[in-house]
Design a protein around this nucleic acid. Structure first.
Lengths: 247, 247
DNA sequence: GGCGCCGAAATTGTATGCAATCCGTGCGAC
DNA sequence: GTCGCACGGATTGCATACAATTTCGGCGCC
């Protein structure tokens, strides 16, 4: 087999290359399921079960779970296992406080660096997003959540800082968890025209304005949450590990 | 055994509690060694060797190394192993760009929340730091690096956001690596009166001023670095994996 | 009936074994 | 002499086996 054949084969099977890093693959699948809210906060992630599901040994599963624990999407308790994170209202506030702190700075950097090609990519995203908004069904809803988060990740990418991009990936993913737990309408997870306005500001290289609009946008998201302290009793928390949210 | 006995015992052996989580312990030891620059960037971290050193199996070592890889202090290459990270000039710039983006925001939050007790803790740190500054020898130098970083971590703690604290922990640790690689004088890693001035601003609850001073301070640190692109040839990079820095 | 305790099953933590991959060395060809 | 190549040792990736811990069900006791 020569190099040309190799490349061709790789291109043909580009989507699932071969199974390059199985731990990363499992991590990504689990992360998708969590941010899509197919896995409810508090769900136990049994190592053997996940391993069977993906047809790998527990060793690989543990690596994936450790990765997700780092990202804050999973909480591990020694000798008890891994659970989909169940952020407290305080943690939820900190997630959004972090985004408020970070995103205006990203907007500033992005406004200076954005290219016309990136603007086009943004527009395409936005269009995709608005189409999903008008559809019904849980699949469209999930895709909408994804698309909405992608807008913010694209912002971080354009800002051109790999470290901040990673931080934003974590914050966006955790935001999804928070919305799953504390979202009131659940519907307007993001949406409206906020993203469009922000993009317009970026296009005019007005980073300051884009930053201010982002803050307003984050306020919108957070306004849809119900972060009242549902009592600080640890008892309560113990009772709510599963999806049994009291009305 | 009753609770009082337990607590007493735990207090007595507070430093090495029992050996609760060995992976975390190894991770912390390795991290200390890296940010102290006892382990040079590019150093290979052999799993078996580390395992022998700490008297654990490779399983535990791998978990520790994976954790450090997440923090960016270690780079793992598939089938080749783990190495102390060797940040490129571009990565170095991104570390400091991230700190510029984040720390003023932390200062703002910290200024609003700082208590007199925290001010005292800051002062003690500062005093400790200035004492180390006047000492000679590699031990004092290492302690100084630590103390200097601790100032920034304390700032993040006072800001009261656990997520941002974790981000700052990563950034401070990576800064140490960057300074080890690209520091010119190596000496004035931080220092001068910058920290004192920042604390004074915080004490007066002038977060804006503290933020501006922080930016200047970060500029000071970065000004001591030599981040010229030492040529973009991958060849070069391959030659400089060990501590063979050309003069 | 409720409470606590004990033992089995289930689950995680860790060590170890084996296969796959990489690295270095020595030999041979040019 | 230099380049290419193959083989052996070393090292990582992964699976599995075993030990430690937790969980759950049942039993006895109050």
């Amino acid at each position: 087999m020569n190099d040309a054949d190799m490349t061709l084969a790789e291109q043909t099977f580009a989507i699932p290359p071969v199974a390059e890093d199985r731990a990363a693959m499992i991590r990504d699948h689990l992360r998708d399921a969590i941010v899509d809210r197919r896995l409810a906060p508090g769900t136990k992630l049994n190592e053997a079960e996940v391993g069977t599901l993906f047809d790998v040994s527990r060793t690989v599963v543990r690596a994936a779970l450790q990765a997700l624990a780092f990202e804050g999407l999973v909480k591990t308790e020694r000798n008890r296992g891994a659970f989909v994170a169940n952020p407290t209202p305080e943690e939820a506030r900190q997630v959004f406080a972090s985004r408020r702190l970070i995103e205006p700075g990203l907007a500033l950097a992005a406004a200076q660096r954005i290219t016309s090609g990136e603007v086009a990519a943004f527009r395409e995203r936005l269009h995709h997003e608005s189409e999903l908004l008008h559809q019904r069904g849980p699949t469209a809803r999930r895709a909408e959540i994804h698309a909405s988060g992608d807008f913010h990740l694209l912002l971080a990418k354009v800002a051109g800082n790999a470290i901040m991009l990673r931080f934003m990936e974590e914050l966006v993913a955790r935001s999804s968890l928070v919305i799953a737990l504390y979202g009131r309408s659940g519907a307007s997870s993001c949406g409206h025209g906020d993203h469009g306005n922000i993009l317009a500001a970026l296009e005019q290289r007005d980073g300051e304005l884009a930053g201010r609009l982002l803050l307003v946008h984050i306020d919108h998201i957070e306004a849809d949450l119900d972060l009242r302290n549902t009592s600080n009793l640890p008892l309560r928390e113990a009772l709510v590990t599963e999806a049994h949210r009291l009305p």
